[in-house]
Design a protein around this nucleic acid. Structure first.
Lengths: 185, 185
DNA sequence: CCACGCTCGCAATGATCGTTGCGTTAGTGC
DNA sequence: GCACTAACGCAACGATCATTGCGAGCGTGG
């Protein structure tokens, strides 16, 4: 919530806080993977940090989850640039599908969504921005790509839908095929 | 989890249990709308039921939420039948979008998703079956509609995506426009 | 090098949660 | 109408959670 984006955070980027924060994030990821019910004391114990610290810094499990989700889903991703919009989208979609088919990532997403609107929105991360970059490049090339909103709805929508609301997340191949819906040949 | 589908449930459909169950479901909906943190004792107090009953019948907040979600999202919905696949889909999509744009419904969905896979899947309800009915009718008519999976991914995917992962759920008009992606003219 | 301030650890407290054994009430079948 | 079973209410218990005041440690700036 208070972190910009990178590995470190906040007021004192180089210090002890950042290490604690990283430990806590790691602990959350671990516990999430173990299906343990997330609670601040439990996270604290796992992270080797005093519970008070968590209550002070984050206040609630929801805020902590939102924080973890943002730092997990927003990061420097190499946006594909093959020269062809279709190929770029296919590759991007496959990458996203691969990412969210990881059970641990799924757990994080579900928990973040359950934490409320902020946590849910954090799960988008900067993926719409990545999409925008792809589409802008196509527009600069002289093409007429769909809008970012439309692309996000169709691609991210379908990928997230299968990941979250069904038992079978989509495969990368399936995600590639999705581009066909957006860009009819 | 133990209920078939209808208003009542389980072993003794006509009895006291069903009333308690209804009261509990109502309480969950209320508390969800109030942003209160859902916990079994709290739900029990609101429902005028003893906490023990909840622990025995559902065991955990997750199971309770999954139960509430299933009974909320699966029900006798009048599947549109206008004679035209496109019109049917547009109307159906608009109905779904209207439904999930209700803040209370949104809260329920987020909470159910956070409760785990079963809760998340419960949010689909029987909407894919409704979709299947629409598409089958078109096939019987001699048309070649998309598969149920593809239709669900695109339509439900986009609608749910905007509802859950963004601050602005889609409007019915927007949802209608979504059909154009699935059925290019 | 030193003083300031932010962050963390520590300990104690009240509140709430989740569980279990037992008695009672309500619904079902003969 | 009567016995049986299932579901519920009740009360206790231990465990865990969430909060607060205080002191110490680490990083930053003069």
């Amino acid at each position: 919530m208070s972190a910009p984006a990178g590995t470190q955070q906040g007021t004192r980027p180089g210090g002890r806080s950042a290490q604690k924060r990283a430990a806590v994030h790691r602990a959350v990821a671990e516990l999430l993977a173990e299906q343990a019910d997330l609670t601040l004391p439990v996270v604290a114990a796992r992270a080797g940090v005093h519970p008070t610290t968590l209550y002070r810094r984050w206040g609630s499990v929801g805020d902590l989850l939102a924080d973890v989700a943002t730092s997990r889903f927003t990061g420097e991703v190499v946006v594909p640039d093959t020269g062809s919009l279709r190929a770029d989208l296919e590759r991007w979609a496959a990458d996203v599908a691969t990412d969210v088919s990881d059970p641990d990532v799924l757990m994080l997403m579900r928990a973040a969504v359950g934490a409320g609107e902020s946590g849910a929105c954090a799960c988008r991360g900067d993926r719409e921005e990545q999409l925008a970059a792809l589409l802008d490049r196509e527009r600069a090339r002289g093409g007429r790509p769909p809008t970012v909103a439309r692309a996000a709805e169709v691609l991210l929508g379908a990928i997230y839908y299968r990941a979250i609301f069904t038992e079978t997340p989509g495969t990368p191949e399936w995600a590639r095929g999705l581009v066909e819906v957006l860009l009819p040949s």
